[in-house]
Amino acid sequence: MQIPYTVEPRPDTGLHNAKIGIWLFLASEVMLFGGLFSAYVLLRTGSIVWPEGSSILSVPIGTFNTMALIASSVTMVLSWAALKMNDLSKFKMYMFFTYFLGLVFLIVKVVFEYLPKFEHHLYPSESTFLAIYFTLTGLHALHVLVGVIVNIYFWGPGSKMWETEPERFTNRVEVAGLYWHFVDLVWIFLFPVLYLL
C-alpha cells in the first residue's frame, strides 16, 4: 500500500504526513519532559536543603557537552540544507559530524559523569537531587541514543532512497532534524537547571 502525502502536502494541513507526525510526537515529548521538570520544581521547592548543582556535578564537562550538542544541531540543519542543494556528499559529511558529536556527548556522559559517580557510590537512591538528576539526564541520554541510531541509518543504508525518491528522503532528514533539535532544546534547559543552580 502506498503511504499518502510523503512528498506533496496534505490539502487540509498544508504539511506532508511525516511532518505532522513528528510535531505530534514532539508535543507528547514536551509533556513527558514537562512532567519531569514539574517534578523537579516540586521536589526542589519542597525540600529543606538542596545542593548546588556545581558542588556535585562538573560544570566544565556539562559545558563541553552543551557545546557538542549545539554543534551537532547546526551540522544537522546543514545536512538538510545540503540535500536541498542536491549535494549528497556534503549531506553525508555533515550527517557524520552530527552523529559523531551525539556519540561524543554520550561517551562523555557515561565515562566522565555516570561512572565516576557510581564509583563514589553516588546512586539515584543516595539523594533526591541525584534521583531527579539521573532520571532527567538518563531519559535525555536515551533520546540522544535514539537520535544517533536514526542519523546513522540516514547516513548509511537509508541514504539509498536519495537515488529513487530524493524529495522524500530530504523530508525524512528534515523530520529527523526536528527530533534532533528538540533533544538539543531539552538539554539547553537541563544544563543550567541541574548544573548551575
Binding site: T13, G14, L15, K19, I20, W23, L24, A27, V30, M31, G34, G35, F37, S38, V41, L42, T45
Partner: peptide, 23 residues
C-alpha cells in the same frame, strides 16, 4: 511554519504551563 503547527504548539504550550503550575 504552517498554521496547523502553530495551533498544535499553542495547545502544547498551554498544557505545559498547566503541568508546571499544577504543583
Amino acid at each position: 511554519e504552517k498554521k496547523f503547527v502553530y495551533i498544535l504548539l499553542g495547545v502544547t504550550a498551554l498544557l505545559f504551563l498547566v503541568l508546571m503550575f499544577v504543583t
